Amino acid sequence: MRLTRRGAGLLATGPTLLAAGFGFGYPELAVLGCAALVAVVLAVLHALWRPVLAVTRRADPDRVMRGDDSRMTLTVHNNSRLLAATLVAYDRCGAAVVPVPVLRLRPGHDTVAEYPVPTDRRGVVAIGPLRVVRRDPLGLATAARASGDVAQVWVYPTVHRLSAVPVGVVRSLDGRVDRVPHGTITFDTLREYVVGDELRHVHWRTSARIGELMVREHLDTSLPRLVVLLDDRLCAHPGGRDGTADSFEAACEAAASLVVAAHREELPLVLQAVSGDVVARDGRRSDTRAYLDLLAEARLRGTGDGDDLDRAVARLRHRRAGDTLIYLTGPGDAADLGTVGSLRGLYPTIVVGTLGNTTGAPSTMDGITVLSAGDGAGFAAEWDGVRAW
């Protein structure tokens, strides 16, 4: 709660008028001073009264591609039984402030505000909380409070269609990668029982502990798997600030395009950031939401050294995750490409995408396919220009 300039002026003038009125025998001045102080006290009490509000918000949709439409619907309901809420409210939507018309909100009624969510930039747009400002009729005091929770809208990178993806070294006779079959030899995870599952796969100890049937899910580890390594180091993207850079945005678009293409071809995929965030799902069971959420939340990190990349490569070396490694980075550093190239003995196919500069990276390296592009669309064109995977 704070006093406005008018309220602070009255608070300072009131005692002066009282002192002058009583000291010099002017009752009129004393009455004015007393009225000023009473007005300030009543204004403070009026502003401090907290209306009972219920704030709900709904984003439609809450996950969109960059540039697509998303709208936020905000509903403010007055739960008070007797008093109307005279308020001025503002909702925060990313970096913008949106006014919400809730003046004279009667008891038991609500007001609805709808406004577009900015989707011109990749990221997670935080919306809320609602900032409710209550002031007295004379404008002497105001009190601002936060009401309601915070919603989020995930803005995904732009996806460019890729005509094909590398399928590694294991192919079926008809030229497509086989789907992961149930019942193969490698344990993956536990899941709830569904009609048709074999009872010999039921994990009885876990089922007894949680009170419902749980079965062991297995997968065939011989199937090819794509591994996308996204370089989110600040040193790999010159000119980066506020957690992003043009080259990093292009790398996120390239990663999103690979995710969607792998999902279309039902290929298992691992998306790993150099900083350590990983999403790994079976191509048959998963959708793209977890991958694209990670890309929407991705920010540039680090202080400028290559230790994070060394650790990421070490993780890939000790736990081979697939047949094809795709490394997406900034304009290109020969030392970084050499670090990733040390994995040639483990991954039959290694592709390096250098984004943001078409002249700063080598065009070829021994055993590595290097694609240089200025943006995500350029990467898709370079990718589709590869004759065969």
Rank of each mutant, 00 (worst) to 15 (best):
R6K: 14
A8D: 08
L10Q: 01
L10W: 07
T16Y: 14
L18G: 07
A19Q: 15
A20G: 15
G21P: 07
G23N: 14
E28K: 09
E28F: 15
E28M: 11
V31I: 15
G33R: 03
A36L: 07
L37M: 12
V38R: 05
V41G: 09
L45G: 08
H46E: 14
A47Y: 04
A47C: 12
V52W: 10
L53E: 03
L53N: 01
R58W: 05
V64I: 11
M65V: 13
D68I: 09
D69E: 15
S70G: 05
R71S: 13
T73Q: 07
T75Q: 07
N79M: 15
N79P: 10
N79D: 15
L83K: 10
T86S: 15
V88D: 13
V88R: 13
V88M: 11
A89C: 13
Y90N: 08
Y90A: 06
A96F: 10
A96R: 12
V98C: 07
V98G: 01
P99N: 12
P99Y: 14
V100P: 00
L105K: 03
H109S: 14
D110W: 10
A113M: 07
Y115P: 05
P116R: 11
T119I: 05
R122W: 02
V124L: 03
R135C: 10
P137H: 11
P137G: 09
A141M: 06
T142K: 04
T142F: 08
A143K: 12
S147H: 10
D149M: 13
A151F: 03
V153H: 02
R161P: 05
S163W: 14
A164S: 15
G168K: 01
G175E: 11
R176T: 15
G183H: 05
I185E: 14
T186S: 13
T189Q: 12
T189E: 10
E192A: 09
V195N: 07
H201W: 12
V202L: 08
R205N: 09
T206W: 02
R209Q: 08
L213A: 14
V215A: 04
R225M: 07
L226H: 04
L226S: 10
V227W: 02
L230K: 00
L234S: 08
G239E: 14
G239H: 13
G240L: 05
G243V: 06
T244C: 03
A251P: 02
E253G: 07
V259G: 01
V260G: 00
R264M: 12
L267W: 01
L267R: 11
L267H: 06
P268H: 04
P268E: 03
V270H: 00
A273V: 03
V274S: 01
V274R: 00
S275I: 06
V278A: 02
G283H: 04
R284I: 11
A290H: 09
A290C: 12
T303K: 12
L309I: 08
H318C: 07
R320L: 10
A321Y: 01
T324H: 03
I326Q: 00
L337S: 02
G338M: 05
G338K: 06
G341Q: 02
G341W: 02
G341M: 04
S342G: 07
S342C: 06
L343V: 09
V351H: 03
V352W: 00
G356L: 03
G360V: 03
P362G: 09
T364D: 14
I368L: 05
V370A: 04
G374T: 09
G376Y: 01
G376A: 05
A377E: 11
G378T: 01
A380T: 04
D384T: 10
V386Q: 12
W389P: 09
